[in-house]
Write a protein that binds this DNA or RNA. Sequence first.
RNA 1: GUGGAUGUAGCUCAGUAGGUAGAGCGCUUGGUUGUGGCCCAAGUGGUCGUGGGUUCAAGUCCCAUCAUUCACCCCA
Length: 419
Amino acid sequence: MQKLRTIKGTHDILPWDIYKWQTIENTLREVFSAYTCKEVRTPIFERTQLFARGVGEFSDIVSKEMYTFQDKGKDSLTLRPELTASVARSYIQHNYQQEAPLHKLWYFGPLFRQERPQAGRQRQFHQYGIEMIGSANPEADAEVIEIAAGIYAKLGLKNWELHINSIGSIEARKIYMDVLKEALADRKEELCETCQGRYDGNILRLFDCKNPGCKEIMHDHAPSILDHLSEEDSEHFEQVKTLLSAAGIDYVLDHTLVRGLDYYTRTTFEIKGTALGAQDALCGGGRYDNLISDLDGPKTPAVGFAAGVERLVLAMEAEGLFDEDQSFVDLYIAPMDINCFTGISPFVHELREKGYRVHVELMRRSVKAMMRDANRQKATWVAVIGEQELESGLIKMKNMSANEQVETRIADIEKVING
RNA sequence: GUGGAUGUAGCUCAGUAGGUAGAGCGCUUGGUUGUGGCCCAAGUGGUCGUGGGUUCAAGUCCCAUCAUUCACCCCA
């Protein structure tokens, strides 16, 4: 009998770690709302077809990493492996374009991909991101990148760098791929096995190979895609770079940055955590001007990014950015026996309604044990209530960090807490 | 899917030349009568991942299996 445990590649976010996620989520809301983005939540599963068409039938994600199943109506459904396609579907289904020409949509949620887990990669993982739909202009690209970077800045993360590139329109990319193929034709035999396969499959992926031999060949012989962009593509990219510089955002120009998903056009970017393991992409995104129309929507330009939350947690832990000493208890009530509850109950209720975090100890422990517990929980105040207090109507309030104790009427607890 | 590493108390790990288990931290309680953080003490807690095999005897050797983990692939 197998012990009950989480499925491979999935994890519980434990109650003593959840504050890390909440810290991140709160910051996300702040930043996205500062840019007047609106959150959208889509279902966790969709028709398989959506991803096959949106992400690309032959991409690895769709061809071998999806959790796909049939429901009782024999429809093929899939746990979402990414969110851009879902948001695009929502945009089309509800005719967002009738509401306004531009939509800035952000999201946060779990995704599923059946890959072998490793550091910074799980089978159920979380991403947040934004899809800015409606603008073909470079200022949209720049704002999306600014938001991505702004979130890390706001969280205090230091060890990351922004890489940007432009892979042009589909037409320009096709031409470039032929040029690349020709430039490497003589060297094909020297490439590693997987790269030889990629040469005929998706030759752009050669840039991602970690094999030193392949890297050298690519470095020495591969032409830059930036030299093969159309005039409009180049102009667009120049403006993006200018806008980023104006916003004071540092970037690394990286012509080898070719995103894996089929739907990207023109600007692509990635933010790498420089203190992470092999899975170091904190955030990846770019422009995708054809996706909406590919999914039978109106021809609509868009740009966005998706960022991994588990990786962000790892990166923040590595930089010690979480406050491990923060208190979750404003007032710890230490009742000496059951009779103490009735007298204090209405006041506790009132404090909680006002937003104070109040713990009433429920274990019937000794005062010593309760004080010890309050200390461990980093409670700011402790109220001791026993027979004496019930008789006199005065309870003892102890400020734990100052080690000072005062007597007060129950009705004045809030005054004491506020000093 | 491929390769490497690892699987002993809640956590981090010891475990010597095979003789049926330890430490630190944690948790609980106590150190006199109703008060924490330090210190001290006691207690709680493990069929040594699982199943076989070798042996008088295996956490310790062999095989298998499962799980975890790191890397490849791919991607956030």
